[in-house]
Simulated assay, not measured.
Amino acid sequence: MNNKIKMIAPILLGVTLTLTGCNLFNKQAEPELVQTLHETQKEGQSAPQITALQPLNVMTLQVTFSEPLPEEDTVIENLDAIKSNFNFDNNLSIVNIPRLKIGAKSTYLVPVTIQNPGTTYSLSYKGGEKQTFKGSDEKINASQTKQVTNDTFEIESFKKEGVTDYSNIIEAYKAARGDLSFQVNDENKDEKGKQYQIISSLRDRVVTLTANNGEEMKANYVLFTQAADGRQAPKFRLPEGQTLKPGMKYIVTSDWATIKNPTFVATQIPPLTIKSVEPIDSKSFQITLDKDPGMELFAGRSVQLQADDGKTIQANYRYTSRKGATGIFDVKDATLKPGVKYKVLPINNWATANNVTLLAK
């Protein structure tokens, strides 16, 4: 047999492979051949194309593709790479991963940085054909704001008023949300024809807090609080070291929401109380409060662990780990030393911990 055998790959691939010095029936050559075919096929596949694009509000796009996005473009660990796959102009970018809507084949909610109303933007996915759209001027209709701790407040909206958090209408959270989940069509109407505004991911969102003495402060969204405990009441927190002043009246404004009742008068709210701390392993432990704080008030909090020799270690709350009054904290850039007793010191006075210690395993 000639030592050069030409084999035509399937027409779908549209390539010709040359096998040199091997027998087509040589079993040892088969894995390499199959791998080459798979790699060639993968390279020949085109990325999904955008077939429809609609701005829903100043921070949310609804994008339909010719086929579902690959899994790697829908997981949070790949967010930086995903951002580079969605190519916008005019300084627009995505802020969190695309989320497939319940019942949809390839229609996703895509949270973006704030659009400039009327500006023409273009978007392409993985270098594909560009689609253009006009920046929206629609803001979310929020209902009210309320203080929840000495450095944190919430902005609440209601489904009954035609506003829904995105977690209620995406496939990824369908099972976890239970009765809160429902399906909307491409126009974001439910089966009864009710229209909904959609709060997309609030990751990296900021609001402005203005006191009646003219002082302005920025408050940052606290991760995983926008739909905690079945409420649409995302939390916003002042920078570390800043607190609300009791008796002071504040007004909350933002570039993504219009708040019907945007003011509140700050009061002195007692900090949470740490009841006990138990080790889990060399990198984590659980904190139990004297009562269930609700509303993910553990979120974004940290504690300092101080050993008898004065050395300290910082630990941060593990998001969404709360079960009732107990939440898990993970040690940052260190490990707990077995047998060492650590004094627990909440950072920024979010809680009290009178004589509470952790004995490491």
Rank of each mutant, 00 (worst) to 15 (best):
N150L: 05
I155R: 07
V184D: 02
T149Q: 09
I140F: 15
N188T: 12
E138I: 00
A176P: 07
E154I: 13
I140C: 12
E161P: 05
I170C: 00
Q147D: 12
L180E: 08
L180D: 05
K139W: 04
T149I: 03
T145E: 05
A172H: 07
Q183W: 09
K160T: 15
E154Q: 10
N188V: 10
T164Q: 01
A175E: 15
D151H: 02
T152N: 05
K174G: 02
G178R: 11
T164A: 13
G162E: 05
K160S: 15
Y166Q: 14
A172D: 06
N188E: 05
N188I: 07
F153P: 08
D137C: 07
D151V: 01
S167R: 14
E154C: 12
E138H: 13
Y166V: 12
S167E: 14
A142H: 10
S181H: 03
N141T: 13
D179H: 11
N150G: 01
K139L: 08
F153W: 04
Y166D: 05
V184S: 02
K146P: 03
K139F: 02
F158Q: 07
F158S: 05
N188F: 07
I169V: 06
T164Y: 04
N185G: 07
S143T: 11
D165K: 12
V163M: 12
N168K: 14
Q144L: 02
Q147S: 12
Q183K: 10
K174C: 00
